[in-house]
Nucleic acid binder design. Structure first.
Lengths: 345, 345
DNA sequence: TCGCATCATCACAGCGCTACGATCGGGGAC
DNA sequence: GTCCCCGATCGTAGCGCTGTGATGATGCGA
């Protein structure tokens, strides 16, 4: 019998080839020093630093962030939850946030709610299971359980793209009601009196609904009763064409239209063109988003630019400040928006 | 002296309130059984299952995926690396992939290369530090170190959105050269003989360059020397306007144009409109992408639909098959593309 | 010369979970 | 009645790293 020892080595899959202690051995220092080298390089003496750097390069060592996250009780991940990245606004924010976080060694864990609060709750639950450095979500409306989950977890939370109600923790966004009001006043200032707001999927997209209410309220302030039209399907040019058709039937002399989105505005613009309604003379049209094609349209689209990338950068700033332990005084940052005055309205 | 024990408890931050062993205690089973309950519920007897479910609900237990990932030597994360989600094609793929993966408890860790191979390498390095269930990246071109890193790590790798060279592991995409050829043949079949390909950022966007070469090759096969024009800036409508201007100056009788992207095509379309060049009679125009506005343009844009969501779903299928240990025979899946015949070209 | 900071380095006990292998009963098969 | 197999359950040793406190080594003023 060659029963070599008292206990057989238990079979266990190894995670990786090179570990920190192997690097330590190669560099002739302890594992703690290697760990320190990665976390606070300045606390390691230059000779040791050099030896470790050499060993890392030679062995091709890649630190295991999963183990690190477990030991440190917090992982270098920021969980980002948006309705959908197919929406250009959120794509811009995701991109800007990732770009701002990457230099600090933070990764983005992405989830899509598709405007479903139950799905959001499930996403928050799994997000928290990663012990993330921060959780970033869209909007201020969440299920009660989601709020409870977020409050219980002692993690920085940023709610973005909306402003109004107090955030769970921090907020970055702008006032969608003010956007609607700005558009209404723009149209009225140009002499429009028969106003309509054409939105898509407003039963789900609460921010679009806020723009609609802000629009109607500003109109009412000048004694105008604006129509609000909603298309239940996706916010695309087809919806815009359909909505213009409806607007023209319900309000034949409509002369000013706000669209919930540039794609919708574009659809309305083309539909007007097909019907030979001159834009902006007969019908003024204002969009939302300032998407890449807005300036190129004929006529160029007047629209609202929401600074989606600024939202991403501000979120990153707050998250990083919190991680560094700096006090964050501003509970809610207003990123504002700009009325881009072009020709259509 | 109330030195209670021989060794003081070392100060250490706890990661979470409720752990698996607390659930086990509450359900009156061992921690192993609770773990089994989450991983293979059917292997746990119904009474135990019920007791555990109750304890989980009562305590509000959320499993710690970081600890799980460390113990299992693999985390339930798929690392996804794309040039940019601001690009609608990739946004669609990211969205479809996330949707297909989420029901299986897999999260998406997102990174943007911005078309930079060095940045891609850094992203792959951090991605691997998460011991991901799979790594998904864009295109077949990578730095030698990136390829080495991916090969050494025993992880499923999927390269997407391109087809041609053999993939590191698995591939999902379509032939961009064939796209270019299809567009060229379409234009020639409609009697066009003066052809140009208008692309943007082709020094970086290798797939756009492949479409251009395929276009030129198919034209040459019929004795036509197509012009290839490149705009170094981003692929937006402004680039399209600029490129049409250049095309008209370099090739005054140009009658057929392929654009590297629907946004570029749209810019060219509007520019043609401004110059009163009838589309498609004087100038036929074909885009790429079938973005939401393509059908709404006036005239509706003939374009290529690349099935970005199918790419995402197929990637998910391969990743899941690999994780289940099923043999994946197809090294490279062709998702194809469709010529959407509308009016512009 | 001694005492006391200061700095670099180290040892080690976990972080919470999974996977292996062992244990324990309760049926069939013979 | 005995044996064996199989399903359910459990005990335990890590997974690779970090953070704390301890240990030397060094410098400096008194």
């Amino acid at each position: 019998m060659d029963d070599a020892g008292p206990m057989r080595r238990r079979g266990r899959r190894k995670m990786q080839a090179v570990t920190m202690s192997e690097v330590a051995a190669a560099a002739d220092v302890s594992a703690s020093t290697v760990s320190l080298y990665f976390r606070r390089p300045k606390s390691v003496s230059p000779p040791a630093r050099e030896a470790i750097a050499r060993a890392v390069a030679e062995l091709g060592y890649v630190p295991n962030l999963v183990a690190g996250g477990l030991a440190a009780a917090s992982s270098r991940v920021v969980s980002l939850i948006v309705p959908s990245v197919r929406n250009a606004f959120f794509a811009e924010t995701v991109s800007a946030l990732e770009a701002a976080l990457a230099p600090h060694g933070l990764q983005v864990l992405l989830g899509h709610t598709e405007y479903d609060l139950a799905r959001e709750e499930a996403l928050v639950r799994t997000a928290l299971a990663w012990a993330p450095a921060a959780v970033v979500l869209t909007g201020l409306e969440h299920s009660p359980d989601t709020r409870a989950l977020l409050k219980k977890a002692r993690v920085p939370v940023v709610e973005m793209w909306e402003r109004g109600a107090p955030p769970v923790d921090m907020g970055v966004g702008f006032d969608h009601g003010a956007v609607g009001a700005t558009v209404a006043r723009r149209l009225m200032a140009r002499g429009r009196r028969r106003l309509a707001f054409c939105g898509a999927r407003m039963q789900e997209d609460r921010r679009a609904a806020q723009r609609a209410s802000g629009f109607a309220a500003a109109a009412r302030a000048e004694g105008i009763e604006a129509a609000i039209l909603n298309h239940p399907g996706p916010a695309d040019p087809q919806a815009g064409a359909l909505l213009l058709d409806r607007a023209l039937r319900e309000l034949p002399d409509v002369d000013g239209i706000a669209a919930s989105n540039d794609l919708v505005a574009m659809g309305a613009l083309f539909e007007a063109q097909r019907r030979s309604l001159p834009v902006p003379d007969r019908l003024a049209l204002v969009g939302f988003g300032d998407l890449p094609f807005a300036a190129a349209c004929v006529p160029p689209l007047t629209t609202i630019r929401p600074a989606g990338d600024l939202v991403g950068r501000e979120v990153a700033r707050l998250v990083l400040a919190r991680m560094r332990g700096e006090p964050v005084l501003e509970r809610a940052v207003d990123t504002g928006f700009v009325l881009v005055e072009r020709v259509s309205g």
